[in-house]
Design a protein around this nucleic acid. Structure first.
Lengths: 213, 213
DNA sequence: CAAAGTCTCACTGATATCCGTGATTTTTCA
DNA sequence: TGAAAAATCACGGATATCAGTGAGACTTTG
């Protein structure tokens, strides 16, 4: 007799969750499926049901998002498999998921057969990343060597956020109790690092890279 | 014997589509369910199967998006029910869906029971909009009277796009063969209409409202 | 047709941004 | 603990932005 697994699935779109439930119920290797609509619920379920071996989760969720949840779950018990199921396929997200060592990452564009196969693989101890994700990641690793990884410092990010709220250098200086000159210096560095000519460009960069709230 | 309906469901996330299929299969009033992953496919199916009475569709789809599809379907045969199922709940989208007279609009946050109830309602000839959508729409109608509907003109939009690309007024003037003064006037009007103090704010507005490409 | 809206242009002045360049002091972390 | 990174500050000058005001030409639409 084959071992049967207990899992948790999480997604804030209840409808998607229901659909996922229906699909995964067809898998004979799965026993109990717990449902959650946010990360906090997942953690609660993990504490309650010690026999859960796998979490399948979305990234965009209220209360505790999927990436934070991934860290929390691995901290709680690193043997628990974590499978990410998301619509996000941007470099930033992919990098984070890989770095945090998720056991799998499938985009929601995949069909149910691919999902079932992937889940089975992960349950058996292997990893499963969708081909799109793998390609992007490799491309990212490759391109990172040319692009000296534009990383803004904490202070720069803070100032960029205020700039996005239409504050002037003077206003920012007053708000942060620093000199206008300092703010201007930070601005210059922000433009340099983001490769923009204007504040507008830097803010666009911030939005596209999810730096703002 | 009750009449049974044939429907088409469309969503580019195949996994979601499969889940939806599973859920709707539980409804006794539904006969055949055709699947599609973009608007073009839906139109093809409609031409092929003349007995389809309802289309349930997402908004974000490749090739032909849900809103265009809604118009196309109603043009093809206005008796066909069109039910929108989307994650989008911003004012802009809601307004468009209502204006194009969809028969229903449910957010993906709804659960399967709500979905089944809504689909039944629409099949019986009624409308079904989720309460969130209804509230937002009413709020929009209400607020529109204060805010004289911020609509940018074609020229303003064109200039805003160039501003987002970090062009200066002078550069824009040269590109469009008009005076710098004119560009400046447009900028002022853009700031006025978008309610921003800076170009940065206007560009943020543009991004949030999907005005840019 | 007339009103409304859009697109065009001009001028002034206050203020903000961007560029270049250089320097000191904390903080971080290997 | 010592080098690297980050945060702080300064000054000058060229240029751009924003605000206010006014106005003529063209297009759309009730």
């Amino acid at each position: 007799m084959e071992k049967k697994f207990n899992i948790i699935i999480a997604d804030d779109h209840v409808m998607f969750l229901d659909g996922l439930h229906a699909i995964l119920s067809e898998l004979p290797e799965i026993d109990t499926i717990h449902l959650a609509t946010d990360g906090v619920q997942v953690m609660r379920l993990l504490h309650q049901f010690k026999d859960v071996e796998m979490v399948i989760s979305d990234i965009n969720m209220p209360k505790m998002d999927g990436l934070t949840l991934l860290s929390e779950v691995k901290k709680f018990n690193s043997n628990i498999k974590f499978f990410v199921l998301s619509m996000l396929e941007d470099m930033r997200t992919i990098n984070k998921v890989v770095q945090k060592e998720a056991d799998g990452y499938l985009l929601k564009f995949a069909d149910k057969e691919e999902l079932k196969a992937a889940v089975k693989e992960v349950l058996s101890g292997e990893q499963h990343y969708s081909s799109t994700v793998k390609e992007r990641y490799m491309k990212g690793v490759f391109e990172k060597k040319k692009n000296p990884t534009v990383e803004l410092s904490a202070r720069e990010t803070e100032i960029l956020k205020l700039l996005a709220e239409e504050l002037t250098s003077k206003e920012i200086a007053e708000k942060l109790f620093i000199s206008v000159n300092t703010v201007e210096t930070h601005r210059k560095n922000i433009l340099l690092k983001t490769g923009s000519k204007t504040t507008t460009g830097a803010v666009k960069y911030a939005i596209e890279n999810d730096i703002l709230d």
